[in-house]
Design a binder for these strands. Structure first.
Length: 108
DNA sequence: AGGTTGACTCACC
DNA sequence: TGGTGAGCCAACC
């Protein structure tokens, strides 16, 4: 798979995240078919063009942590009704995006 | 070509 | 439950 296709797929997946939910880099990597390239997801979002309107603020890491070097992300998520723990992490148990495709794939 | 880095994740304490 | 350390894969010097 070419890098461009991988990036495009990531952008498409991130764009499907509904408001009020969050996804992890690893989850996106799985949905894109490359579970071991979760780090690439972060790279892809870091270089994501603005005109695609990607809700990259809804993407957090597996521990519910927000992106370093991006203080406004917390406020953007708060606007969508997402609450944070005292340590500043997102409560993944509540807000993690449950992709139907992913659930089905894991069950079988 | 080889070593370093990171918008990560898993495992352990 | 939450903080810390080690492992991984690509990109970037």
């Amino acid at each position: 798979m070419k890098q461009k296709e991988f990036f495009t797929k990531i952008y498409q997946i991130v764009d499907d995240i509904p408001p009020g939910s969050v996804a992890t880099y690893g989850l996106i990597a799985i949905l894109s078919g490359q579970p071991q390239r979760s780090r690439m997801v972060g790279q892809a979002l870091h270089h994501a063009p603005d005109f695609l309107n990607i809700p990259c603020h809804r993407v957090v890491n597996c521990q519910g942590r927000l992106t370093p070097d991006w203080a406004d992300q917390r406020q953007l998520l708060a606007e969508e009704g997402i609450q944070f723990k005292r340590n500043g992490c997102v409560d993944l148990k509540v807000y993690l995006w449950k992709s139907l495709r992913n659930v089905t794939a894991l069950d079988y």
